[in-house]
């Protein structure tokens, strides 16, 4: 692999966004994902190669998270560095020479106002190469349905924090299912378990952003 591409991957894994960013401490003052991607594209490097290196970097940081070697803040920095790269790749996405993995529509269900967990999942899924549509909090089933109509091949993610809002989550799953029987739905949030997810008719459950990315990769492979 091109050395520059490898360095971009390392910047993403370490969360080094750009030269001005003081994070991580040991890379202070060095060029980051932003400058290096610009340089690589100027030098004619293949955009797809850059994207693949960065996706691999996100997988590595996710694995470190799974081993408790890094925590949510490092994952968020990596996702931000990834965003800096994809900003440069935008023209290639638009021309079709580079493609997103798919569209992920996420929201916190009606009656629930918690957004932090949903925001973290949304950031990390986007960092892993998905196009993310974040519908916000207190999202009524109709709003999910409208968004799905615009992106019928999407995957849907629902978030809830309390057992009382799981009722609203089940209702949302049912209403979506009634119109889009084959759509993939993943649910998450502190009070959920795989059992509850299955009971309400969701296809999957993930307990953290890393789990969500793994689940998305698995269904993509299966389809």
């Amino acid at each position: 692999m091109n050395e520059l591409v490898e360095t971009i991957g390392r910047c993403v894994e370490r969360g080094k966004i750009n030269k001005a960013s003081p994070f991580p401490g040991d890379m202070k003052g060095l060029d980051g994902a932003d400058e290096l991607t610009h340089q690589a594209l100027e030098a004619g490097t293949d955009a797809e190669a850059i994207l693949q290196a960065c996706i691999a970097a996100m997988v590595r940081i996710g694995e470190k998270f799974g081993r408790n070697e890094v925590f949510v803040p490092e994952m968020l920095m990596a996702a931000k560095a990834m965003k800096a790269v994809t900003e440069h790749l935008k023209p290639f996405f638009q021309s079709g020479s580079v493609q997103a993995k798919g569209t992920f529509i996420i929201g916190t269900v009606a009656g629930d106002l918690h957004d932090i967990g949903k925001n973290l999942v949304s950031m990390f899924v986007e960092g892993n190469g998905w196009n993310v549509v974040d519908l916000g909090v207190d999202v009524k089933p109709e709003k999910f349905i409208d968004a799905i109509r615009k992106q019928p091949k999407c995957v849907v993610g629902l978030s809830a924090l309390l057992t009382t809002t799981i009722v609203s989550m089940s209702k949302t799953v049912q209403e979506i299912r009634a119109l889009f029987p084959s759509i993939n739905i993943v649910v998450g949030g502190a009070p959920l378990t795989m059992e509850i997810a299955k009971e309400m008719g969701a296809n999957g459950y993930a307990r953290d952003p890393q789990g969500a990315v793994r689940w998305l990769a698995a269904i993509r492979e299966a389809s």
Binding site: P73, I116, N119, L120, M123
Partner: peptide, 12 residues
């Protein structure tokens, strides 16, 4: 902070 693109600070 999340809206303004500073999720780390938002999380803290």
């Amino acid at each position: 902070l999340f809206r303004e693109g500073d999720p780390v600070r938002g999380h803290f």
